Computed example of a mutant assay.
Amino acid sequence: MSTPRDLMIVALDVAPGRPLERGDLSLALAGAEVYDLLRTGAVRLDGDRLVPRASPAPEDPLLAEAASALVREAPYESPADWLWRRGRGLSSAYLAALEAEGQIGWERNRWLPFRGGRTVLSDTEARRRAGYRWAADEPVLLALAAAAGIRDELTPAEPAVTDDTVLTVLAAVHDAVMELEAVRQRRAIEDAAFANVWRGA
């Protein structure tokens, strides 16, 4: 199972009632993909550039798609550029993949007889594996979850990431999420100002 899939499962399992920003989650998922590609040797970080390496395609279809989407010509791509490009709509792609595999279903009731309502995780090996990584306080998974808003920021007592390459990727995820939040706030202010103009305020 891949880290982005585990992160998506954790998002559905741990915080089903917590409002998550899809953009934040998508950026964290793109960061999780880079982490897995670094682990498998499909890419390396050269300065601030992601440089693809010759390696077997990952078994996971979405991770294989991520590997094939890497920029393969100099000057390559920074982790931040990758997050914005690859992250667009990524949470929806992982949600659809989990649904197609039978990992999740949709809650139904008499008011919503067809698909609708909230997602419900099936009792699968993938869910148990993601739960194990979460319960084990795996540092990278915790950091990505914090960036996505699934949980609060890490406390000093929790295990920390020590690999400089991974830290660079996690910092890029954090910065991208902060930038996206700044954009949201700016749009909210602009929308409020526009509404005031129309009301004659």
Score class of each variant (00 low, 15 high):
residue 130 A to D: 08
residue 167 L to A: 09
residue 184 R to A: 04
residue 123 D to E: 15
residue 152 D to N: 00
residue 129 R to G: 12
residue 165 T to F: 03
residue 20 L to P: 00
residue 63 L to P: 07
residue 26 S to G: 06
residue 40 T to H: 00
residue 96 A to I: 05
residue 35 Y to T: 11
residue 11 A to F: 01
residue 161 V to K: 05
residue 142 L to F: 10
residue 69 A to R: 04
residue 194 F to T: 07
residue 165 T to P: 07
residue 60 D to N: 11
residue 161 V to N: 05
residue 56 P to C: 06
residue 12 L to W: 04
residue 138 E to Q: 08
residue 184 R to M: 03
residue 30 A to M: 07
residue 53 R to N: 14
residue 150 I to T: 08
residue 61 P to Q: 13
residue 18 R to A: 07
residue 23 G to L: 06
residue 146 A to R: 04
residue 31 G to P: 05
residue 9 I to D: 02
residue 78 S to C: 05
residue 103 Q to N: 14
residue 195 A to V: 01
residue 13 D to Y: 03
residue 96 A to T: 03
residue 96 A to S: 07
residue 109 N to M: 11
residue 156 P to Q: 10
residue 64 A to S: 15
residue 45 L to R: 11
residue 126 A to D: 13
residue 84 W to D: 02
residue 105 G to M: 03
residue 172 A to H: 03
residue 81 D to G: 09
residue 189 I to Q: 12
residue 135 A to N: 08
residue 192 A to V: 00
residue 193 A to W: 00
residue 161 V to F: 09
residue 196 N to H: 04
residue 93 A to S: 09
residue 19 P to R: 07
residue 119 T to F: 08
residue 150 I to M: 03
residue 36 D to R: 05
residue 66 A to D: 02
residue 123 D to H: 14
residue 117 G to K: 09
residue 184 R to T: 03
residue 131 G to L: 14
residue 197 V to T: 07
residue 13 D to T: 07
residue 184 R to E: 12
residue 77 E to V: 09
residue 183 V to C: 02
residue 112 L to M: 14
residue 18 R to G: 02
residue 53 R to F: 06
residue 12 L to S: 00
residue 168 T to A: 15
residue 183 V to F: 13
residue 175 D to S: 14
residue 47 G to E: 07
residue 59 E to I: 07
residue 34 V to N: 02
residue 80 A to V: 00
residue 90 L to M: 13
residue 118 R to I: 07
residue 112 L to H: 13
residue 142 L to T: 08
